[in-house]
C-alpha cells in the first residue's frame, strides 16, 4: 500500500512571465488531514488545479493516489473527490437525486448506488428528508451532504475548499468529526481555507506566500516556531 497520498516535487506553474507556483515540494501521508493555506493570490488555487488534473504543470513532478500527474491525470480524477463551499450539490434536485447523480458520474453500479444512498442517508439521519430538494436544507446539512457525495466513489484523496464557513460551532464540529472518521479509515483529506481556526484542526499545514511554500508543519510546530498563540498569528507574521 502506498504511504504517500500526494507527492509534489518542484511543482511549478508559469503564466507567461509570471510564476504562480514556484518549485513547491511537499508530501501528504495517507490518512492525513492536510491544510493548504495562503493569502488571496498566493498560488493556492493554481496549485490545487494542478493536483486535481485541471491544469498542466510547467515543471516538476507530482503523484496523487500513487498515479503520475503528468501521464495519468484522467485516472487521478477517478481516485479523488472534490467539495467546494460554492458549488457541490444541485439545489433543485432532491437529496436522493444528488447522490444518484454523483454515483452515476463516477460510474458506480446501480446496486452500489442504492447501498451508498442508504448508507449516506443513515449516517446523516436524513432518511425522512431524502426526497426533499437540497436547496431548502440548512447550510450545515448541505455541507455534510456535500462531503458524503464527494466520498461516494470511495476516493483515496478528498479535496475540500473552505468546507465549513458560516455554520455554528456545534455544526462545524459535526463536520470535522466526519472528516476525522474518514481519515481514520485511511482516506486522505486536503483542505484549503482562509480561516486559521479551521487550520488548527489539520494534522499538518502548509502556508503559501508568493508562489512558494513558506512554512510546513503541525499547528503546534508552527506556533512554536513563530512564538505565536494561534495559527492566525503565525499566518499574519508570514504573510505581512
Amino acid at each position: 500500500m502506498i504511504s504517500n497520498a500526494i507527492t509534489a516535487s518542484n511543482l511549478t506553474k508559469k503564466f507567461g512571465n509570471f510564476t504562480a507556483v514556484d518549485n513547491i515540494t511537499f508530501n501528504v501521508k495517507r490518512g492525513e488531514v492536510f491544510g493548504f493555506l495562503g493569502a488571496n493570490g498566493a498560488g493556492k488555487t493554481t496549485a490545487i488545479k494542478m493536483l486535481i488534473g485541471l491544469s498542466k504543470p510547467s515543471g516538476g513532478e507530482a503523484t496523487v493516489a500513487g498515479l503520475n500527474l503528468m501521464t495519468q491525470s484522467e485516472k487521478i480524477k477517478e481516485r479523488i473527490g472534490y467539495m467546494s463551499q460554492k458549488f457541490s450539490l444541485y439545489e433543485d434536485l432532491t437529496i436522493r437525486q444528488n447522490i444518484n447523480f454523483y454515483g452515476g458520474v463516477y460510474g458506480l453500479k446501480r446496486k452500489d448506488i442504492r447501498t451508498k444512498t442508504a448508507d449516506i442517508l443513515a449516517e446523516l439521519q436524513l432518511e425522512d428528508k431524502a426526497d426533499e430538494k437540497v436547496g431548502g436544507l440548512p447550510l450545515g446539512w448541505k455541507q455534510r451532504l456535500s462531503f458524503s457525495v464527494a466520498n461516494v466513489h470511495d476516493p483515496d484523496v478528498v479535496f475540500l475548499d473552505e468546507p465549513t464557513g458560516g455554520v455554528d460551532p456545534a455544526t462545524r464540529r459535526q463536520f470535522w468529526e466526519m472528516i476525522y472518521a474518514a481519515a481514520s479509515g485511511g482516506r486522505t483529506i486536503f483542505v484549503t481555507t482562509h480561516y486559521m481556526d479551521e487550520a488548527e484542526y489539520c494534522d499538518r499545514i502548509s502556508i503559501m506566500v508568493a508562489g512558494k511554500i513558506a512554512a510546513l508543519g503541525t499547528p503546534g510546530e508552527l506556533k512554536e516556531r513563530f512564538a505565536a498563540k494561534s495559527m492566525d498569528e503565525v499566518f499574519l507574521r508570514l504573510v505581512r
Binding site: 493569502a39 464557513g165 486559521m196 499566518f235 499574519l236
Partner: peptide
Amino acid sequence: TTGVDAVSRD
C-alpha cells in the same frame, strides 16, 4: 469579513 483572507480581516 466573510470570504476575506486573514490579513485583510485583521
